[in-house]
Amino acid sequence: MALKNIPANMQGYKLMITEAPAMKMRENEDTGQVEPVTDRQGVQQFVVSLFAKRKAQPGEYAEKGEEIKVTLTADPGEGFEEGTYVQLVDATVSPWQTERKGRYSSGISFKANGLTPAA
């Protein structure tokens, strides 16, 4: 897939932390061990779970929200606990597709350079 890191404007959404930021970990398929995820430069990645719900305009019905996981390119620091409303810094979205044992999966992944408290 050629399109990656497409800028995403999330200003029209309320984003509430449902799982505090933590180091992103992945199981090594060869060894079975869980290892930290790094980018190509070796920088540790983090992950946060957010409940995203579109902000309703006056007279509009508030649509149902959805939980998303966002990869953070840096440690967001202190003060981002469960229940905190945040905004994403330089959010992007990328489509992905995988095939394992003849089964295909696809979706989108979210990435941001950090978090800031919502105004």
Rank of each mutant, 00 (worst) to 15 (best):
K55S: 08
Q45V: 01
L50M: 10
V43D: 11
E67P: 08
A52R: 12
G59P: 09
G59D: 11
E60W: 00
G32R: 11
E29H: 13
K55W: 01
K69G: 06
V70I: 09
E60R: 01
V48I: 09
N28E: 08
P36E: 02
Q44I: 00
T38H: 01
R54C: 00
F51V: 02
F46W: 15
A56T: 09
K53M: 12
L50W: 07
L50E: 03
V37T: 13
Q57L: 08
T38I: 00
V34K: 13
V48G: 07
T71P: 12
D30I: 12
T73H: 04
A74V: 08
P36R: 00
G65L: 02
Q33A: 14
T71F: 07
G42H: 06
Y61A: 07
E29D: 13
V48R: 08
L72N: 06
K53N: 07
T73G: 05
P58L: 00
F51H: 14
G65T: 03
N28P: 12
E60K: 02
R40M: 10
V70D: 05
S49V: 05
F51W: 12
A74Y: 04
A74G: 10
D30G: 03
Q57K: 15
Q45R: 13
G32N: 12
D39L: 02
P36S: 01
P36W: 01
T71Y: 10
A74K: 11
Q33E: 15
V43F: 09
L50K: 08
V43P: 03
V37H: 07
E27M: 15
R26S: 13
A62D: 06
Q44K: 02
G32E: 11
P36N: 02
K64A: 01
V48D: 08
Q57F: 01
V34P: 04
R26F: 08
L50I: 03
R54F: 02
E66V: 05
A62C: 08
G42D: 09
V37N: 08
E29I: 08
F51Y: 15
L72V: 03
E35H: 10
E60I: 01
